[in-house]
């Protein structure tokens, strides 16, 4: 059930300040988990620990039930199975050719050239970058580079794909394109997705599980609904409610409308508003009767 299990993970950088303090998490297989937290909360550090680029000072990480070994062969395995897409694609794409960059990780797996070519072509289709494979990397837009970066990770056929701020720097269209692509990857390929983000509004839309990190410690773990029912906790850690949940809870508390205040997406909000109207119509008179104290 849980593909990654982290228990009491601690990590500190060379300057000695602890970056992660006793982090424990369970990442569910085939789900999208969001890691929320402000800048410097330890999200990126956590990711680098998961894929073995940084070695935890203490604590253990289990991947598919087995403890991760930080030996050379263990690292090769874990880096293949857990791929990270970095925030700035220019940090990740080191080649000026799209195909070369995508094939980079594959060359180490001892596959035949035909197999490599087949996998690259497949992943190019999956990520929808057919039209740009011939272009040099520096001629691509930010969103296109992001897709190529995702393709370079996906081609390794990982079990888990981690994305550090996948939506940062993208326009609204780009954001929904990338997130829909991730949804597709999760559904079609069964890959577990972990994303870090500041964008609370996308959490209820795309994420199944959510963890809140602050100052290197886990503050919260659970479903988005249970997180959004605790606005005080969010505020205490420099986060906020999704706009829609915020609106619903104001309508409920200040205007006494009988709305579901955990509604966090447009469709949920629409449902609860429609429901209120229908209740009201059945009840008779419009207007004042929508108030919950009179219903």
């Amino acid at each position: 059930m849980n593909i990654i299990e982290i228990s009491d993970l601690c990590f500190s950088y060379e300057d000695g300040a602890p970056a992660l303090k006793n982090v424990s998490m369970s990442i569910k297989r085939g789900k999208t988990t969001a890691i929320l937290g402000g800048n410097g909360a330890g999200k990126s550090t956590l990711f680098l620990n998961l894929n073995g680029v940084l070695t935890p000072k203490s604590g253990r990480v289990f991947f598919e039930g087995k403890e991760v070994s930080y030996s050379k062969s263990g690292l090769t395995e874990i880096r293949r199975k857990i791929g990270i897409v970095f925030q700035d694609p220019d940090d990740q794409l080191f080649s000026s050719s799209v195909v070369k960059d995508i094939s980079f990780g594959l060359m180490k797996l001892g596959l035949s050239e035909d197999e490599i070519r087949r996998r690259v072509e497949l992943v190019v289709k999956q990520t929808g970058i057919e039209s740009i494979v011939g272009k040099p990397t520096h001629a691509l837009s930010f969103g296109q580079k992001k897709r190529v970066a995702i393709a370079g990770i996906l081609v390794m056929e990982p079990s888990v794909i981690i994305l550090d701020e996948p939506t940062a720097g993208l326009d609204p269209q780009g954001v929904s394109e990338i997130l829909n692509l991730l949804d597709e990857i999760k559904q079609r390929l069964g890959i577990t997705v972990i994303i870090s983000t500041h964008d609370i509004d996308l959490v209820p839309l795309y994420c199944d599980e959510v963890y809140v990190l602050d100052g290197g410690s886990v503050i919260f773990g659970g479903t988005p609904e249970s997180l959004f029912s605790r606005p005080d906790l969010l505020r205490a850690h420099n986060l906020r409610l999704p706009r829609i949940t915020h609106l619903m809870s104001i309508l409920r508390s200040r205007d006494s409308l009988d709305l579901d205040s955990t509604a966090s997406t447009i469709s949920q909000a629409r449902k609860t508003i429609k429901h209120l109207f229908e209740e009201n119509r059945r009840g008779g008179a419009p207007g004042e009767d929508m108030r919950k104290d009179k219903v």
Binding site: L48, V99, G105
Partner: peptide
């Protein structure tokens, strides 16, 4: 960091176009 996490082992091998 990015190269390490992609399994870089000291040489840039990749598929020629």
């Amino acid at each position: 960091l990015a190269l390490d996490s992609r399994g870089f082992e000291g040489n840039f091998d990749y598929l020629a176009e």
